Simulated scan of single mutants.
Amino acid sequence: MKEGSSGYRVTGLQHLLNAHGAKLDVDGQFGAGTRTAVVNFQKSKGLDADGIVGPNTWQALITTVQSGSTGNAVKAAQSLLNAHGAKLTVDGDFGAGTRDATVAFQKAQDLDADGIVGPNTWKALVD
């Protein structure tokens, strides 16, 4: 993803950037503000600060979330699950509904259906 991109992946990205300290309006549009947040995040992680979200940047952005987790990373997971057919309130609270949606998504993707949004589930959510 890069400047000019839009859609559910950008929404997830913006929530994840906010989880790492950015203060973006989550609008699903990869504009100048999102690019600046990506560059700042990349610099903070010692990555190539090109403003493009490739595999290395995604890997650094993802945070494992599960039952009891709260915050912007949960909002990212909820937004991405909704893009895949869930009907969750994006509230940043990983409760029973988010766990059930995660398990259903994992089963549909032939992943280990453990209800935890870890690296493999994140990858499936954004691919």
Rank of each mutant, 00 (worst) to 15 (best):
A76D: 02
I52E: 01
G92T: 04
Q66P: 00
V90N: 02
A19N: 15
D48M: 02
V26M: 04
T89F: 00
L13T: 03
T36G: 04
I62G: 00
D50S: 04
Q66V: 02
D100Q: 15
D48Q: 02
F30P: 04
A19V: 01
Q66F: 04
A73R: 08
G33I: 01
N120T: 14
K43R: 15
N120Y: 14
G4S: 13
S67N: 15
D91K: 13
Q59H: 10
D127T: 15
L61C: 03
L61S: 03
A104K: 11
D25L: 06
P119D: 11
D25I: 14
G118P: 09
Q29R: 13
L80I: 07
K87I: 04
V65P: 03
G97I: 05
S69Q: 01
A83S: 15
V53I: 12
A113K: 07
T102A: 04
T98S: 10
L13Y: 05
F94D: 00
Q106V: 09
T11P: 07
S5H: 10
A73D: 09
Y8A: 11
K87E: 09
R9Q: 14
L111Y: 08
V39Y: 03
S67Y: 13
A37R: 05
L111R: 07
A83M: 07
T102C: 03
T64Y: 01
K43G: 07
I52M: 02
G54Q: 10
I62V: 15
A49M: 01
P55M: 00
T89D: 13
N72L: 04
D112F: 10
N120Q: 15
K123Q: 15
G92P: 06
G28W: 01
T70P: 10
V38Q: 00
A32E: 06
G51N: 09
G92I: 02
Q59R: 13
G51T: 06
Q14K: 14
K2F: 00
S44G: 13
E3N: 12
R9T: 04
A76L: 12
G68S: 09
M1L: 13
H15C: 09
S5R: 05
W58D: 09
T11L: 11
D91G: 13
G7A: 13
I116L: 07
G97C: 00
A60G: 04
V10A: 10
Q59P: 00
S5L: 08
A101D: 02
G92E: 03
S6I: 00
K107W: 01
S44N: 07
H84F: 04
A77I: 10
Q109S: 10
A73P: 04
D27N: 15
R9Y: 11
D27M: 09
K43D: 11
L24C: 11
T36Y: 08
K87M: 04
Q42M: 12
T57P: 06
A104R: 07
V117W: 07
G97P: 00
Q59E: 14
D100N: 13
T121H: 12
Q42A: 08
A60N: 14
G85P: 06
A124E: 15
